[in-house]
Amino acid sequence: MRNAYFVLAALAVAVVTFAVARLIDNAYVFFAGYVVLQYIVLATAWNILGGFTGYVNFGTAAFFALGAYTTVVLHKTMPFLPLPAMMLVGGVVSGLIGLGMGYLTLRLRGTFFSIATLAMAVVAQTLITNWNFVGGSRGAYIIRPSDSPIFSGDYIQYLFVVMLALSVISVSLARAIQFSRLGFGFSAIRDDEGAAEASGVPTLKLKLIATALSGGLMGMAGAPLPYYVTYLDPASGFSLSYAVNTIAMPLIGGTATWLGPVIGAILLGTLQQVATVTISSALSLLLVGVLLVTFVIAAPKGIVGWFKK
């Protein structure tokens, strides 16, 4: 029941958010808001594996870009598919990649998994760069429809709503996990994997669930990207800034709960949108790096930690 109430509350927040954005009635609000929402999903997804289970994924960009490129493929082969269906496929592709990666490396020490995710990002980028069907290194152009298919408004408003819905789903899922049997298992693994096994926790299975869920959500977050940017090339799709942001946001917000990544994504995402416009995009990225290092050193429990004893 608690979960149902939370989903209702999250939906209410989402509806209000959309209503306010419509009232402002400026396309930039939707373009900027989309990015912040996308980071809420990415940070929440990262935190399911990184914060709850304790395995650091440096390969966010790969899971994200694979979702985006799945859409490119579907757009060329099955253009009639609605966007949510493409997102589902993108999520499955990235989730399966996560599962495979996890199966190969999760029996090892955590640091090996982290290094392997970095490696995986470069392998995936090389494959896409050499795959001409999706544009190779030249990139792919996608024509963004002009109008929303489900309500009257610009297509960017539709993308905004879709990402808003995915945010509600991801955050509700993360919160449900946190208070569930699965969440206790994840925490046990994070704290002491050997003791977790001895307590009956099937650690490998749970780690695989976390990796697949986390990767799948990242893929879903990436799937609408081609329609948002209208031009997608490997260098921008696999940009390291996705990885840095998705690690920085949960660590700055606080990794222990579902709330931390949301706070981190809203603060850091908004800050970057503002900084990119007012200063420069390179400086805004530098800002993220500096904040990340500052927070891991000075505030190990993140912003959420300030409000608990």
Binding site: F184, S187, D191, D192, A196, A256
Partner: peptide
């Protein structure tokens, strides 16, 4: 080797659940 980020009650809860 307790689960350090969990409370005592939650520590006990893990093997009960699993």
């Amino acid at each position: 080797r307790p689960f350090t980020t969990l409370t005592l009650a939650e520590n006990i809860r893990v093997p009960i659940l699993y």
